[in-house]
Design a protein around this nucleic acid. Sequence first.
RNA 1: GGGCGGUUAGCUCAAUCGGUAGAGCAGCGGCCUUUUAAGCCGUUGGUUCUGAGUUCGAGUCUCAGACCGCCCA
Length: 509
Amino acid sequence: MEGFQESEVTQARIEHIEGLREAGIEPYGRAFDRTHTAAEAIEFFKSTEDTSVEKFQTDPVKIAGRVMNKRMMGKAAFANVHDLSGNIQIYLRKNDLPEGAFEPCVKELALGDIIGVEGPLFRTKTGEITIHATEVTLLSKVINNLPPLKEVEQEDGSIHRFFEFTEVETRYRQRYLDLLMNRETRETFLRRSRALNIIRREMDALGYLEVETPMMHHIAGGAAARPFMTHHNTLDLDLYLRIAPELHLKRLLVGGMEAVYEINRNFRNEGVSVKHNPEFTMLEAYKAYGDRDTVMDLCEHLISTAVTEIFGEPKLSYQGTELLFERPWKRVTMTDAIEEVTGVKVDIRDSVEDLIKKGEELGLNLEGSDSPGRIINTLFEEKVEETLVQPTFVLDYPTVISPLAKQKPDNPDLVDRFELFIFGREIANGFTELNDPAEQHKRFNEQLQEKDKGDEEAHEMDLDYVNALRCAMPPAGGIGIGIDRLVMLLTDSPSIRDVILFPLLRPRE
RNA sequence: GGGCGGUUAGCUCAAUCGGUAGAGCAGCGGCCUUUUAAGCCGUUGGUUCUGAGUUCGAGUCUCAGACCGCCCA
């Protein structure tokens, strides 16, 4: 049996736990019927406090949580118990606890133990609302020596911390410790959950149906990215983890579902960075009889609603920069954006030679590029993206890099597509969906040629998808929103790893 | 993939020019029945990320590697 190397501390804790059992005290309890959370208990006291009564105390309450601080004073002790709602002080006095409870349960209480406490609420001499314990129930004893937590709430509500648990690697590897010790981490993930709730509520209200499509694909399509591979043993079948749900969601449009969305994981076999985790969460939505503008509007609505609800106004501060979400957001075509930033005027109808020359003027080596669309996209990525700090919709993408989008009626080299940039980062992408099966077939074939030329991210041929289009897909608009990157903005998190509970790390030996 | 930085006690961090590896908190023992960074007295705890090298002597210098972070592709 594999095991743990016990230190003096953990060995002593294990022996103490065995001792409790021998004394008839169960160290790992069962269901505990709380009457209040810590925050509710404090609220309960405040709402019932009668200041005309000397030594006022409430009816008994029952709370449960983790002991994060203990001040032992011989035959009495104070401790702080944390639960998800907050923190409450408990007062443990030997004479007020059941016979035989104080020595083994209170004196041996370790930081990190999970306990249940019953008793009335009162105010201490220093005015702190406290539970005067008449019962203590051990619910789960710690073995490991947890980092110490000492923090004090200031009068202005901020928290002053005396010791910190900040080591990035341990925070990611042992997220449970991070969540336990750092309230900012808890708040980040609570806010993530809240943002998703807001988005789902809005999507549901707008009549979008939430669906789940496969994570395992025969063909990794719907985006330009390298996939992860896996294998089904019984069917002896190579499969890919999906890089996007797009083609399946659009099959649902063919099937008559008129507005669908999915919030789920995508997997891309790429590098790891502040903006990239190999698995990440994406919202994709498709609206039949809509177009790019329908979903651009949806995007603006969802994000501005989330920001406004969470911050109380349509703005937030991210890494020291104020970001303004008041609608409507700036809209600019890709070529206009390039001209605004660089002063260089480019056009999709320019020759490759001219565009390479213009790129050189801007310090970019574009030798070997073979299409105006790709060059313009590179110019945009290199020169413009990082300048788009305030929410900005960039419109009219080259057709060559958008194999699933519909061409503009007046210019087949461009598609009706947008990407949303905030703080220089791509947050969302949407377009009018290509629903012409012949054109789609042709675009897939063009992608295959790119793949032959060595583009590992070129799109695969998906004949089954073309076949679905042959059964007629209604005109539609579709959008993808990177949820992790959005949550980074909403939580002022510098790295995508700060908003993913268990980010991918190399295993540690 | 490349560059830079980091890794010392459970946690946060020191360690001068290469010269006995320290502190606070946590832990352990003792005192203490309204404390709150509780206090007071005492005390344990180290593969200095790993391996090799230089040296009388390496946490410190050199080389290789691991992991993490940041930047770049």
